[in-house]
Design a protein around this nucleic acid. Structure first.
Lengths: 340, 340
DNA sequence: TGACTTTGTTAAATCGGTTTAGCAAAGCTA
DNA sequence: TAGCTTTGCTAAACCGATTTAACAAAGTCA
């Protein structure tokens, strides 16, 4: 039993498929289709359980009602939660979401964007990996609607939604200083992305403003593709030796979660031996013992606003609009991992 | 500048689009297109950066190369990780994934399945919520390829991949008994799903087999849509009073994470005051202090096998095959939250 | 009554591919 | 040289919707 098509209804009722299409799209009145015929069509459509083929519709109208979401990894709770917010907001606008995990690899995100661009989505929400500038520029040239989230490229005039990473790192570091910590370390990633560099800058600036010398040995920059061993090495170095730290700022939750695991496995007391503050706020930080002070990102707002901006871009064909570039505040969640 | 179509290439070269299509689909040789012309077409396609429109292709061939993934919530790390495995495996087969979070609501999953069924996907991987039997039966009738994961309906002869929930709960409870715990509680959810009921049954059977009376007061069944307050109440009751428990089994990580948060906020020592074992193994359990004993599910295997089964269903039109019903073993990860 | 409107409906083009059926020219056989 | 085969290519149908342009019939006006 095949699915019923527009034509099936038309044939059964002995009318044209134009008429059926018009009626079912609510354009009956507008096109002066008689009340009687309208009802007949609607009734038959219901009887045959007619569901329009979205592919055919998409081909004709050039709209898919789908947005492509390119993020690093849907298994990472940060992106999982963001993805969920995006899904929710998109759904309110009648849109679906195709998701792709790029693993922060430019080549992978390039492939994904290229495939989805082949008529599969109407626009993109992208968390662009390092080195994907070219791909973003191509979207710009092709006038494909897109919004960047979490990071952006200063040299490209995109629409984006990010948080104030510099300020967040600055405030977090200052918090540790105020609590009385002096030897504050930072564990970050070797990533050229502006959000990462800003976090490091914020950390450095806070130390400098408090007249604390920035000890390069307390800045641990992990390889771009970092594993637990890399983190363990960093934490071990910070835990002992001449450059021993009394507090640490983790610049992502991925690093932070691995870091805490290492801290625990080394038998270090938090915050006694080492105070901890981390970017992002996964569930884990609430049930860690002690709970971990976190720099929470407004994921709900990032998600809903990015979708709204994208909808604007997709619906309004009014030439080039001024790009929307939003910088939100993070939410500092003070917990006991950073108390003196 | 519009995207180049098949026809553009055909016109530029003065050949038919049939020829172009055949050549670009690697059927040139098969259809005796001359070597020279083949090369010309391929060169021109590259020159114009031709990307076939997947929508048009999909309309004609009836294939979308997309699978629909219906899960409870992509923000839940359990489903996030599962989603990622599914994405990876699907990608190996040239498939994309459209994801939908149903929030365990049958009505929502019904809508989502219905929409995706309108030509948007070739098949489904579904974690069906309570009450969605009817929807699954409809898929069965319509002969839409689908695979259930995490749960299934005993009365419907579906393809599915689940874990042995009874055994997992049995073993976990037995572990607690062996460690010397006597007053073992279980915090679960009021959900008719077979996976949930089997977890409870496994727990009860282990107690019975050890000649420990099953105290109904130590079985806390949370509302279907449970919030932290519900968990807090349950944990508080288990922590004190006449029915005080010395160990607890959480039947999902969502409950477990909330439960641990409550345990910590009540100032209870783990495992001193209350030992803990939980289904699932989110990151949080590794960095919790002490780390939490977990019943880890083989998400990688669930993901890859569900996709493989789905691929089989989609590719082989050889009538009705015997349903593949797979029951995998969980992986018990003993950590210090359950040691005496 | 002839011209003009309005009403109700439809044929056909279109989106961009895939696929079927077949045709013209060249080569080969007898 | 008639007839058959092979080679190389194409016209047209098709997938299932939307949309444009138009047409017949009925009603209105002068």
């Amino acid at each position: 039993m095949k699915k019923t098509s527009l034509n099936d209804i038309a044939v059964e009722l002995g009318v044209s498929k134009t008429l059926v299409s018009l009626v079912l799209n609510g354009k009956g009145r507008e096109h002066r289709i008689s009340e009687k015929v309208c009802k007949k069509v609607i009734a038959k459509a219901k009887e045959l359980n007619y569901q329009p083929n979205q592919i055919a519709k998409g081909l004709r109208t050039g709209k898919t009602n789908t947005i492509g979401l390119i993020i690093a990894d849907i298994a990472n709770p940060f992106f999982g939660k963001l993805g969920r917010e995006i899904e929710n907001e998109a759904s309110k606008h009648g849109y679906r979401v195709m998701f792709c995990s790029s693993d922060e690899k430019a080549e992978k995100s390039k492939q994904q964007i290229e495939v989805l661009q082949q008529g599969l989505v109407d626009g993109f929400i992208i968390s662009p990996p390092t080195g994907s500038e070219e791909q973003i520029l191509k979207l710009e040239e092709a006038k494909i609607p897109y919004v960047l989230v979490d990071r952006f490229f200063p040299e490209i005039d995109s629409n984006y939604i990010v948080v104030d990473n510099f300020l967040a790192a600055y405030d977090a570091t200052q918090h540790l200083i105020k609590e009385g910590y002096k030897k504050i370390a930072c564990v970050t990633i070797n990533d050229k992305l502006v959000n990462m560099s800003q976090r490091l800058e914020g950390y450095k600036k806070a130390l400098a403003d408090a007249n604390i010398e920035v000890a390069e040995s307390r800045i641990k920059t992990l390889p771009f593709s970092h594993e637990k061993d890399d983190v363990l090495l960093a934490v071990t170095e910070l835990a002992g030796g001449a450059e021993k730290a009394d507090a640490v700022l983790f610049t992502t939750s991925k690093v932070g979660v691995m870091g805490l695991e290492c801290i625990h496995s080394l038998g270090l007391q938090v915050p006694g031996n080492l105070a901890v503050v981390s970017f992002d706020d996964p569930d884990a930080y609430r049930i860690s013992n002690p709970p971990v002070t976190a720099i929470a990102q407004p994921l709900k707002e990032i998600g809903s606003r990015s979708v709204k901006i994208l909808m604007d871009l997709m619906n309004k064909r009014k030439g080039k609009k001024n790009p929307q570039q939003v910088m939100l505040k993070t939410n500092f969640v003070e917990r006991s991992s950073s108390k003196k």
